[in-house]
């Protein structure tokens, strides 16, 4: 149905989709994600909770991939930036009674500034050193938050107000889904621009980029700051959705989760991680809840998947899609999947 619709009114729809960096299949997917909370068995609250978690990881995977897939820097302290944004927003709401909506924005800005400062310090180092430094900085921040009990209540956890006055998960789901889409489109815009070209150049060959007049440190910092800002925003969402923050949130294991999803989805694709997050997280949650007598199994699968993809199929799902699925013989299908029309 949808396929035919978009085929009929080619001109305008195509241009809009192109502007938004979407293919017909992506539009269909988004529509599916919007209606899925009404389709059994996804219409149950716990399922919607999983969907929220999946969308959150998906959005994080985009922000994470924006750094690793383009400028080739692993932000190993990603969740420290996310947690920083979350804590900022939560503390503002708890202590100053600020609206969580404004808090989220301020949290994002704070994380962005922290990312900028970190970037200024780390991003002149070679990749692996930058990764170490973000890792240690994350550790230090986790320690600080644990210790600043008067402000953060430390390991007891900081309770914070929720965004919506309802026990339903549905509004949260639509909020995070919209955030996911906005984040995808905006990061995609950036990577399509001249700046995106510079990012790619730096990620692929630092030396060549420099000799062609690109200042790698500048672009790395811009990229990193943007990614951290998004992390802070999503941290605010996390805080006001789950309603409680603990220092554990800043731990590296959380970052590993996002890292795995970004890689399995396809490094450097942006959409791959966002897409794969849904089936992946829901499968993981199913495994975890149905095999609760085997704790840790889901994480073993995480780690194994990450390793297998890295060794045997470094392009991840996105590469698989582009090589095997995106160009079928059938013209309509091809248009649907790749958005390319041949005339």
């Amino acid at each position: 149905m949808k396929t035919n619709d978009s085929n009929m009114e080619s001109g305008l729809a195509d241009r809009i989709m192109d502007r938004l960096c979407l293919t017909p299949a992506a539009v269909a997917g988004i529509i599916l994600l919007f209606v899925i909370p009404f389709i059994p068995p996804f219409n149950q609250q716990y399922m919607i909770r999983w969907l929220v978690a999946a969308a959150l990881i998906g959005a994080n995977a985009i922000a994470f991939d924006f750094t690793i897939g383009f400028i080739n820097i692993v932000n190993f302290g990603y969740y420290a930036f996310l947690g920083f944004g979350g804590y900022t927003s939560a503390i503002l709401a708890v202590n100053l009674g600020l609206s969580p909506w404004i808090g989220m924005i301020i949290g994002a800005l704070f994380s962005g500034v922290l990312g900028l400062l970190t970037g200024l310090l780390t991003l002149r180092l070679r990749g692996i050193f930058a990764a170490c430094m973000t890792w240690f900085l994350g550790l230090a921040m986790m320690g600080l938050i644990t210790k600043m009990v008067w402000l953060t209540r430390g390991p007891l956890g900081l309770r914070c107000p929720q965004l919506f006055e309802t026990s339903s998960n549905l509004p949260y789901y639509y909020l995070i889904l919209s955030l996911l889409i906005v984040i995808y489109i905006s990061t995609k815009w950036v990577t399509r621009s001249n700046m995106g070209l510079a990012f790619k150049a730096i990620g692929q060959n630092m030396e060549a980029a420099r000799t062609s007049g690109i200042n790698p440190v500048f672009y790395r910092i811009v990229n990193f700051t943007l990614s951290c800002t998004i992390a802070g925003l999503l941290g605010g969402f996390y805080a006001h959705y789950y309603g409680v923050l603990t220092p554990e949130l800043l731990h590296t294991t959380k970052t590993v989760e996002v890292l795995a999803v970004a890689y399995i989805g396809g490094r450097g694709s942006l959409w791959g991680g966002a897409f794969i997050a849904f089936p992946f997280i829901i499968t993981m949650e199913l495994i975890r809840s149905s095999l609760s007598e085997l704790p840790g199994l889901n994480l073993i699968i995480y780690g194994l998947m990450l390793m297998l993809v890295m060794i045997y199929y470094p392009g991840g799902f996105a590469e698989f899609f582009n090589t095997y699925l995106a160009k079928p013989k059938n013209r309509f299908l091809r248009y649907f999947l790749s958005g390319i029309k041949d005339s």
Binding site: G127, I128, A260, G303
Partner: peptide, 26 residues
């Protein structure tokens, strides 16, 4: 692949760490 070896091998060890920790737990 030897391309980008340091970073890729680092990420492999990250995966390995997750697997070993949880294998112990399991």
């Amino acid at each position: 692949s030897r391309e980008n070896w340091v970073m890729n091998s680092f990420l492999l060890t990250v995966g390995l760490s997750v697997v070993l920790i949880n294998a112990h737990q399991l």
